[in-house]
Design a protein around this nucleic acid. Structure first.
Lengths: 210, 210
DNA sequence: CATCTTATACTCGGCTCCGAATATTTGACT
DNA sequence: AGTCAAATATTCGGAGCCGAGTATAAGATG
């Protein structure tokens, strides 16, 4: 296994925060929020504490101090170790330079689109377009809010990426709809599957080549 | 909780297979492979059996028969129930019509790109472009293979979507690189963070509005 | 000053998921 | 006929993850 010891991206974010400032767990989460990272990295308290424990076990972070404040629970202040610093850089390098396969939900749904009759599918996709538009508008608004508040573009670049992907999906779906509604060739088998003229998915004969 | 009882997309795929033909677990996996769905849905034996159990517990599928073949283990043949049929359709409708937030790894990395010096980041992104190009070429090749074998476009449409997203990412990154290399404004703070002129992320004063 | 809400701070039980191991059968090649 | 690789078919232990709960402190409200 050539796998990272801690693989959840929240672990990366934790190390990034600790590189800038030693903090206790809850403070790490708050910092990530002031950096507006909740939108690109899932911050979940349940996970946070688990991940901090495993980062410590892996030697990437260590307890630097323990504060106490009245009756509140103790707060352990963590800091990045040298090995953690190295892991942070290596991991970032890998994530930036290597594009690895992921499995977006819409892709899974598309792969089984034949389960839904073509006319209904087209209708559902039209709803999706609307939905995507709303998400784009909302995201662009956030972006201009951040800019107005003086947050540098460097710190919101991931949101621009998100918008770019949403727009790409939108225009792809916008091309798919007319294909479903107008191309006889594309939907002929599909329709037959739903009228009962066909009861099996027509697959090509496996030519026994290898 | 307004959540699906079984939330792994492999569960959706299992129900889709069973709608077409009652099968035992291993056969479900093979069918998905002949449908070329490994690329859009992660098929993992470890998960498969867990998911089949929970689909059964949820009442979406049920054991129809038990085969035995010599010394081989018994094979339980599952089929879709009415409730499962309904779940399959509803789930598909939701996935097709609602675009929901996901957290792609590259987005997470981008959100922390300031951790890497700008020149190095640009270099890493150039590697990524190459990487994406390879993935596109490979995917397009698969696609034309499928076509040559006579597989209808309907059954490979998710792959076209994948390519569209890859191309969108590529052209977005292609625009980001010159921004990093040529825009003084974009990289000024970024450089300072790495020369030590700045040791904290410059955030806007929170104007106490609400 | 009593109460209600919000922010701070963390814990825990349990479910989901999966890699790796296991074991048998079939097919291919010598 | 013997051996090796590939396909068939499933199990299981444990890592990872997270929702919901807990508890205190601080600030707001009437």
């Amino acid at each position: 296994m050539n796998q990272r010891k801690v693989s959840n991206p929240l672990g990366l974010a934790v190390m990034a925060v600790l590189q800038v400032e030693e903090s206790h767990p809850y403070q790490i989460a708050s910092t990530l929020r002031t950096w507006h990272k909740e939108n690109s990295i899932k911050i979940n308290y349940g996970s946070l504490y688990t991940i901090i424990t495993s980062l410590e076990k892996a030697g990437f972070i260590e307890a630097k101090d323990v504060e106490r404040d009245g009756a509140r629970p103790e707060r352990t202040i963590y800091g990045l170790t040298d090995s953690g610093q190295q892991e942070l850089v290596e991991w970032m390098q890998e994530l930036l330079s290597v594009s690895n396969k992921e499995y977006p939900l819409f892709g899974s749904a598309l792969s089984l689109i034949a389960m839904i009759p073509p006319d209904e599918a087209a209708e559902l996709l039209r709803k999706r377009i609307e939905n995507i538009e709303n998400r784009i508008n909302h995201t662009v608004l956030c972006l201009s809010d951040c800019e107005k508040q003086g947050l540098e573009r460097l710190f919101t670049i991931e949101t621009e990426y998100e918008v770019a992907l949403l727009e790409a999906e939108k225009s792809w779906v916008e091309k798919l709809i007319p294909l479903i509604e107008e191309s006889e060739e594309f939907t002929s088998t599909w329709r037959k599957l739903h009228t009962g003229e066909l009861d099996r998915v027509p697959l090509p004969d496996e030519q026994g080549e290898h």
